[in-house]
Amino acid sequence: MSVVAVPAAALAADAVPAKQLFGKQNLPSKQPTQSLGFYAKGCLAGGIAIPVDGPAWQVIHLSRNRRWGNPEMIALIERLGRESKAEDGWNGLMIGDISQPRGGPMLSGHASHQIGLDADIWLTPMPSHTMSYQEREGIPEASVLRRDKMTVDPRKWTKAHERLIVRAASYPQVERVFMHPGIKKKMCDTLEGRDRALLSKMRPIYGHHYHFHIRMKCPSGSENCEDQVDPGPDSGCGKQLTEWLNRVKPRPAVKPTKPTKVVKPKYLMLSALPNACKVVLNAAPVPSMAEAEYRSGNPVQVPVTAYATEDPVAKVIAVASDDFSVFIPPMGSIPQPLVRPAMQ
């Protein structure tokens, strides 16, 4: 019986959760763009970053370094920002997490967002001023729900919120728009005419009471990208929505009779991702002056609470993680694409 030797490096990599391997990557791979695998089990080759500030958006939580995506996704977000500001009475997007520089499992917070085709858009309009670094890091999670956590608060919800979500769902490239069940109910109750056909794309999910989540279809020609099954034609405003709302209905606390068993979470390992993700992980980074400055600058490790500058370009940022630190090059000089896909 023959024995196949496994390289020591491969064994070592698969002893570490994939989120740590991808979370350490500061720059995208120097490869042709590809979204590889599924939204919750994949990676991103040749990703690009959306600019921190645009004519109709500002990116928040810069320390996470999650403003990377497939160029088609970045173009779609930019289009949503421009059109919603010009036509929907929305002052501009506050953009949360898209993906890490090379995608893959994130260090915290998401199961998806792994292939550069998911994005979180906050339900708070962009302020009229350019936010400081500290403002972006500490932006509050402003829920649009009542205290019952089941229905939209009319003091916080506007027609502009509705128009923004409708516009996002109207793009044919968008597969789904995820939102809290209470927001889904509001859309079911108020959408009329042709807009009601978009309700099938609007999917209820917990946690999305201060932001909504756009999921884009695999771009044309993405042979190694796995699409989610298209949502059915049903509006989802009947029994399915009632079941979701019943799950979030407040219930009296019940004292447990037995100690609660703590289940240790299972993390994705590199072997669970497409084989091409190993290549992405080990590929050379996109060359840039920022990278050269970062490599030669011997940055000092600092905790996330020690940020003092309002200028994110002025210093290298260190982000504390589970048992290691991730250094991010100055945000202002991360490579940007000169030409973006036209998505009219």
Results as ranks from 00 to 15, higher is better:
R176T: 12
F178V: 13
M179L: 15
H180Q: 09
P181I: 11
P181M: 08
G182N: 08
I183D: 06
I183C: 15
I183W: 10
K185Y: 08
K185G: 03
K185M: 10
K186H: 15
M187W: 01
M187C: 01
C188E: 04
D189Q: 09
D189V: 08
D189Y: 03
D189P: 09
D189T: 06
T190I: 10
E192P: 10
R194I: 12
D195T: 06
D195Q: 13
A197M: 11
S200T: 00
K201M: 00
K201Q: 02
M202F: 12
M202P: 04
P204V: 01
P204F: 00
I205Q: 11
Y206C: 10
Y206P: 11
G207Q: 00
H208K: 10
H208V: 03
H209W: 10
Y210P: 00
Y210E: 09
Y210V: 01
Y210T: 05
Y210S: 14
H211E: 14
F212L: 04
H213W: 02
I214H: 06
I214F: 05
M216Y: 12
M216I: 12
K217E: 06
K217Q: 13
K217A: 09
P219W: 11
S220W: 09
G221L: 06
S222T: 00
S222G: 08
S222M: 11
E223S: 12
E226N: 08
E226W: 05
E226T: 14
D227W: 06
Q228M: 15
Q228K: 13
V229K: 15
V229W: 13
D230N: 14
P231K: 07
G232E: 03
G232D: 10
G232A: 08
G232T: 05
P233Y: 00
D234I: 10
G236N: 01
G236Y: 07
C237I: 13
C237L: 07
G238N: 07
